[in-house]
């Protein structure tokens, strides 16, 4: 059985976003890159499946500037993935092109039984690559998955929707599973794991190898803007009862939200 995990490098959640001088992107110069938090749940779920059944090879795959995304792949391999595939691209790719490239790369592999992804990447918040990828691979998808169980070709996934409601799906055969927080608790990479990861095989591809180019994106962003500055906070003084009274008055009469 072969399982693939898609990972992305994103700016750390503590990053302060600065906009480029041309306004058409962000300043990436001082950003600390981390593995997309939702992708960590995807990696963990793939490794759990590997441990529950024999003869499973877990391959991590990523696309983006080679040096940056190789870090994510090494992290996945340090956690336990067997090998990695990097698709090198300096261009910023939209979900369509990302999924197209991933699907072309995966079709070159001998088989594909499951693809695990994060439900979204916390940079562009598109939550689209998993579904594009599933369609390009011709297989079903379930996104926002908070429970995944099963074996031997029959699986059950719970998908979390509004109000904590859960849709329960039965899946047979290959599928894309997009992980939500709560699916599992990702393990930390151990020191021996980190050492071993350095020697695990890493296959390198370019967009050109897949018959694609950076110009194939279908959605781009321009005119970046920061949120408007808030006026300074109005502190409400007094005893709790007075503060409560004054706050309600302001919310009704000044802010007009009650």
């Amino acid at each position: 059985m072969r399982i693939f995990v898609c990972v992305k490098q994103v700016p750390d959640t503590e990053t302060k976003i600065k906009i480029n001088s041309d306004g058409n992107g962000i300043d990436e110069s001082s950003i600390k890159w981390i593995v997309n938090p939702y992708d960590e749940f995807a990696i963990e779920e793939a490794l759990k499946l590997k441990e529950s059944a024999g003869e499973i090879r877990v391959t991590a795959i990523s696309i983006g500037p080679k040096k940056r995304v190789t870090d994510a792949l090494r992290t996945a391999m340090a956690m336990g993935a067997d090998d990695g595939i990097v698709i090198d691209s300096e261009d910023s790719l939209d979900p369509y092109l990302t999924a197209k490239a991933l699907s072309e790369a995966l079709k070159k592999e001998d088989s594909c039984d499951f693809i695990f992804t994060g439900k979204l990447a916390i940079d562009d918040n598109a939550s689209s690559v998993s579904q594009y990828l599933a369609e390009f691979m011709g297989i079903p998808h379930v996104t926002v998955v908070s429970s995944f169980k099963g074996s031997g070709g029959s699986y059950t996934a719970e998908r979390e929707v509004e109000g904590g409601t859960k849709e329960v799906y039965s899946i047979s055969g290959p599928a894309v599973i997009a992980a939500n927080k709560g699916l599992n608790t990702p393990r930390y990479a151990s020191l021996p794991g980190i050492m071993k990861a350095k020697k695990k095989p890493l296959k390198e591809l370019t967009l050109g190898d897949l018959g694609l180019s950076g110009a194939d994106s279908k959605v781009t962003f321009s005119n970046f803007e920061l949120p408007p500055e808030k006026p300074p906070v109005k502190f409400i003084e007094g005893e709790p009862a007075e503060q409560a009274k004054e706050l309600v008055k302001l919310l009704r009469e000044e802010a007009k939200v009650l």
Binding site: P11, T15, K16, I17, I19, I26, I122, D123, D124, N125, D216, S217, K218, V219, T220, F221, S222, N223, F224, E225, L226, P227
Partner: peptide, 16 residues
């Protein structure tokens, strides 16, 4: 569309 969970916002442009 808000990006980085709302840390900034950008205009969406379609191509192809």
């Amino acid at each position: 569309k808000p990006l980085y969970a709302g840390k900034c916002k950008a205009q969406v442009n379609f191509a192809n």
